[in-house]
Design a protein around this nucleic acid. Sequence first.
DNA 1: AGCCAGGGTCTAA
DNA 2: TTAGACCATGGC
Length: 207
Amino acid sequence: MPTAYEIYTQLLSAYGTPEWWSDDPFTVMVQAVLVQNTAWENVVMATKAMGGIPRPETILLMADEELHALIRPCGFFRAKARTIRSLAAWWDGIRGDESSLSTEALRKQLLAIKGVGEETADVILVYALYRPSFIIDAYTRRLLSRLGFQFSSDTEIRSFFEEGLEADAGLYGSYHWLVLEHCKAVCRKTPCCDECRLRTICPFCCQ
DNA sequence: AGCCAGGGTCTAA
DNA sequence: TTAGACCATGGC
């Protein structure tokens, strides 16, 4: 079985240096909510409809109906609008002094927001706040499963990565992005080829 | 037509 | 503490 770092280097050599989500923290927060159980293309659609993700202050001034209409293509628009509003208020309040808070404290605050679960909290911590908190999503679980790992909980998966890697937000962000690149290319729910069944990371098959 | 997409909450047992 | 229902839309 490969180590967490060996998986990373394989992905890196296969897909090259990954991109960062966005340099604007609030954009990451909003898009992280919009993409919940939704195809990324729908998030792009909504982002364009808004002419870019608005500032938190702007979101807070919008009527529900307006916000609903803008994010409708992403689905679950009532719940997501509420979550985005909560995030806007939260970020508007602590922006600037968040560096004095520990990663765990920030994570706890994020999880206290309705509509923000573990994955979304970790995405925000890594890509918006540059804190190392490993992101575990369906693709991560699927890739590990294909590689032959049998974890019984996300806690175990988190330990596998966080104990096998430097606690570095840049590394965690790159890792998550690479897993995404890989799974979009080859790791669908059903193994798509013999290479996948053989538990090999195969970036070159099954487009 | 039905399934999937970078989830999360709530409820029941 | 875990499983299942539910939330909503767009693409294929």
